[in-house]
Design a protein around this nucleic acid. Sequence first.
DNA 1: TCTGGGGTCCTAGGACCC
DNA 2: TCTGGGGTCCTAGGACCC
Length: 424
Amino acid sequence: MNNRIFALVDCNSFYCSCERLFRPDLRTTPVGVLSNNDGCFVSRTSELKALGVKMGEPYFKVKDICVKNKVAVFSANFSLYTNLSDRVMSTLFDFTPNLEVYSVDEAFLDLTGFDEKNILDYCRHIKETVERNTGIPVGIGIARTKVLAKLANRIAKKDKSTGGVYRLLTKDKLEYALERVDIEDVWGIGRQSTIKMNELGIKKAKHLRDYRNDKLIQSIFTKVGRMIQDELREISCFPLNEETPKKKEIISSRTFGRPVYELAMLRESIACYASLACEKLRKQQSVCQEVEIFVRTNPFKESVAQYMRVNSMKLDSATCDTRKVIKAAWKLLDEIFINGYEYKKACVKLSRIQDASEHQISFFGGHDTIEDLAIMKAMDKINARDGHETLKIAACGVNKEAWYMNQVFKSPRYLTGWNELLKI
DNA sequence: TCTGGGGTCCTAGGACCC
DNA sequence: TCTGGGGTCCTAGGACCC
């Protein structure tokens, strides 16, 4: 046992809550948000869950249920969600700088040193403040390790009597919780591990905590499994990571709105994804020295011939120049493209990422010149000021409708588009 | 007809070196 | 018949997360 205290703040049905914020008429309506291309449900309100719609459920399979129950369905509107996420996080930051932004809708707070008697009230105050400032409802779980804080958060959300804040600090509460929580609901225990845990007779969180053979746990579930076990014992193994590390890989991929057959169209999509990835790369002031792409047909469509190929290359010199990355990606595409398949998805991945300021300049040249960097900088600046893709590389094409994803239910960019602000 | 996107960490095993 | 031992680095693939 240690004397640290972690609080996990988690936004309730985050994407749905964002949509509801601008549509108060939907306060009691079941709401769901779909993945890109209007594929699967990635966020559901409790009302939608109650209708039996599962996480990751393809929309077309439950369309009838949605229509019958007047479910408000939305296409993903990530610029809106990111913006609201920033507001939630900055509100939390006002309470403590010891904060880890764990995901778009979750943050760990280090509240070590707080008087344990008052901590429940304090977290209720945090919850109310976030909700008042941003309109996004949250739940908070409090415990001595991150794994247990996750668990406490689960209870806070499931058990209405908690009022959305739950403290898992006393021995009896801990026993009560660990006896009831299934092993698969423990943070870090996924599908494969659950099967192996069950074989060992571990069905509940408590069984893992009390499992005597630590070495066996380590050998089957690796170091990570052992750390989860210790975290259940209130031994903190996962530290709070306050600064967000730079990405080591940047991926940009999309499923096409419709099947694609021509090399020219694949090239356009690849150029677009490469542009997106390079933008992110420059934003974190990095350069990459490896480009990977893949293309594939629709694995769900069994009636057509299947094809999937990955191809990658190392660059002579690390770069953040979109033009060079597109050139490399196109070369990779030409090598693996086969005529006659019905392509459904393409992907660009940048790796071997280094800091732009520190990277080694190649002896053989080919590195980004001052002029290259100036062009990229100008492009980023114009796009930041006048909107995404105001200026883009011609290789990306102009007729995106030919392959771009479907977004039939997209809400306005209430917070990031001047023409789409809420009208009252 | 219609099934997402973007990450991280860990380990085993191969390549290579002396 | 019988052919060493020890170390590092890299990569692919598995598992997990939201």
